[in-house]
Design a protein around this nucleic acid. Sequence first.
DNA 1: CGACTTTTTGACCTAATTCAACTAATGTGG
DNA 2: CCACATTAGTTGAATTAGGTCAAAAAGTCG
Lengths: 246, 246
Amino acid sequence: MPNAFISKLESFEPLHADDRAWLISISNRTREVGADQDLISEGDNPENVLLILDGFAMRYKLTSTGRRQIFAYLIPGDFCDLHVALLKTMDHSIGTLSPCRVAYLSPSIVLEMTERRPALTRALWMCSLVDGATLREWLVNLGQRSAPHRISHLFCELHERMKAVGLTDDGSFELPLTQSELSDTMGLSVVHVNRSLKELREAGLVSLRNERILIPNVQRLKDYSDFDPSYLHLRWPNPGRDVSAK
Amino acid sequence: MPNAFISKLESFEPLHADDRAWLISISNRTREVGADQDLISEGDNPENVLLILDGFAMRYKLTSTGRRQIFAYLIPGDFCDLHVALLKTMDHSIGTLSPCRVAYLSPSIVLEMTERRPALTRALWMCSLVDGATLREWLVNLGQRSAPHRISHLFCELHERMKAVGLTDDGSFELPLTQSELSDTMGLSVVHVNRSLKELREAGLVSLRNERILIPNVQRLKDYSDFDPSYLHLRWPNPGRDVSAK
DNA sequence: CGACTTTTTGACCTAATTCAACTAATGTGG
DNA sequence: CCACATTAGTTGAATTAGGTCAAAAAGTCG
């Protein structure tokens, strides 16, 4: 099984075989979690750092008026909160969107890494910087773009990220999101998301069916979405490494 | 002159006199910068870490369609990008909103700190976590709240942050923002910002004039805004330390 | 005092929401 | 494997929040 986490870290900088082996060895204490489960809830003081090995998860927060805002999708290779150690409590929740395989990294493992594996530490540091940059881009997205552009921009981002961990098949990849989840991501109503998707579909830009997205022409979608991938800070922005290309 | 940076760091954890003295000593290489100047531009590879000693600045980004999204306000005591060292280039800009006094911290100073002053390092680490949490809260704001609530929520946040660095006078503080800047923050048109402000003013919740905001009843505004300050992770959420209270 | 920027207001338009109904999926227990 | 329940997706009609355009009033500043 190709390790998405390693692919992701190596999209920032190449790793030594030694570090790679260590990463594989620590990813063994894993758990299977069903869809729609909280991995960490707001207010928790989590002990472990979680690493998504398989499946989709999200960061989200509920407002006191009962609305939900999703502010990040976690895909295979993403991890939650190296830094959480410092904060007493989580100020948001992390929940699964699909069944996930999750690794639990103990504090001692994290400590061992930060003290003895500078390249890995740097790569993880990078990850959290990229998370921040992504959040800023989402803010631009919500603040400045219309519904269809907003949605298609998200699709471009997810395509890019899935490609970086080898989970795209050309312009197609798994996307287990309901329209309701999309609406909570985009600050739109479900109905309007539905209509916007229809518009994208009729323009031949994207089609979604049974938990999979198909982008017939990725470049065309990027142009449409005003998508500039530089905020993801991937080392190989253009060529990529597709499943199909292997 | 009370050092806002120290106030801010101490709102996370108390500092030793030694660390405090060191902070004062490093804040001496400063520069005065006029309003509406870029301190760092997108694409730069900045050498120094900047620290705002006085005045208002912002993080922002321009889209290819010429729109601007502001994603953070920097107030006295805030600093820009301890972490920027790792990223080759800035993916957004930082510009002044009012005349600012800015300290330039050289890489060697930062290095000295991270190696010899763990308490300070931890406090700065905290700052960047809080920046992240704030960004998430802004996303909730843009995604889930109507124009007037969105704006008033921002005012609550700024009040809380200004209070933490001793720059509020009861419910009033300096706020050198034009309505156009507010609109680029909130993802709204200037006209709509104007009308929303009128609504808030007529409800007796806030009034703005000559670069100052007055909140007659802070608690009432918080209730109106659904404002929960916990994301700012301040140690003293309630009492605060007002100019007027001293 | 002009030139310029910011704020305010009015009239009109459009994007997005709400409510409501209906259709397709998906799943569950018998 | 089917009947039923439940969730997800789709569509229409009416409404509203917010945008655009345009122009006037109020500040700011050399």
